[in-house]
């Protein structure tokens, strides 16, 4: 690694080292720099769909989670203009689904909500789409509430890449895209998902919830009551909060 010293990128004026094969997001996370993201989770294949991690690399728009880091890159991340873009994208995610934070079990533990707070989002701004989406409560211990799905495909990838199953997929096109389940009946009960699966816990919003565990942690003591989303090394904390005391 004699040339390791040369492997640096600049993020908001700060020189950041990277190793071959890292993306801009990998390098930023390793340097405790927060780039807002929803569809990215270290350990899973980068997706690049939510576009929250949009940065400007040498003046060009790019997704930090998919663009390989390369020497000479000057990355703008924490700028007023990009915060505005990310806030707008977050608002778009809110209005395309049906998100009622006060009545959602995930409130306070929800990454979408936390990102919205981080970006000073005060309302959905755009007219609501009010889509009609199906709830699947067929499984004995896991409920699928599609109203809250943001199409990040974390569950899709976690099931395939970590759990070694293939429980979830996205179907449809455009705004009609939706999360489906890989079984003949289309019901979660007819898949091999269990509460031990990462896919059952990885949902950043309240679309996939564990049954019979409502409001065990009171509001005020939830993940983002105690932490801000921009805190370094928060990923394990977020995931841990997704699990409950009697699970492992």
């Amino acid at each position: 690694m004699s040339e390791a010293n040369n492997n640096t990128i600049i993020i908001d004026g700060k020189e950041i080292p990277f190793t071959e094969g890292q993306t801009i997001m990998d390098a930023a996370l390793a340097a405790d720099i927060y780039i807002p993201h929803l569809c990215h989770r270290p350990g899973l294949k980068p997706h690049g769909s939510c576009k929250l991690c949009t940065v400007e690399v040498n003046g060009r728009s790019a997704s930090a989670c998919t663009l390989p880091a390369a020497s000479g890159q000057e990355v703008s991340n924490n700028t007023e203009a990009l915060t505005e873009v990310r806030k707008t994208i977050t608002q778009m995610l809110f209005v395309e689904g049906n998100h009622f934070c006060p009545s959602c079990e995930k409130t306070g533990d929800c990454t979408l909500q936390a990102v919205a707070y981080h970006l000073d989002m005060l309302d959905g701004h755009f007219p609501q789409f009010y889509p009609k989406r199906e709830v699947d409560a067929s499984h004995e211990s896991i409920v699928l509430d599609r109203d809250r799905c943001i199409m990040c495909e974390l569950c899709v990838r976690a099931s395939r890449e970590v759990d070694g199953k293939d429980v979830f997929a996205i179907t449809g096109r455009g705004v009609d895209a939706k999360l489906i389940v890989n079984s003949a009946s289309g019901k979660l009960a007819d898949t091999d998902i269990t509460t031990d699966d990462l896919a059952a816990h990885i949902c950043p919003v309240g679309a996939i919830l564990i049954k019979e565990h409502g409001y065990e942690t009171p509001i005020g003591r939830r993940t983002f009551d105690l932490h801000t989303i921009a805190e370094p090394g928060l990923e394990p904390v977020i995931l841990r909060k997704g699990k409950h005391a009697d699970e492992h």
Partner: peptide, 21 residues
């Protein structure tokens, strides 16, 4: 474009519909 957007990324999936509306 709203009809043909594949729906993968947020800006196009939601944005083309907002523009249409």
């Amino acid at each position: 474009f709203a009809h043909e957007s594949c729906g993968f990324c947020t800006p196009c999936r939601v944005g083309t519909t907002l523009l249409r509306n």
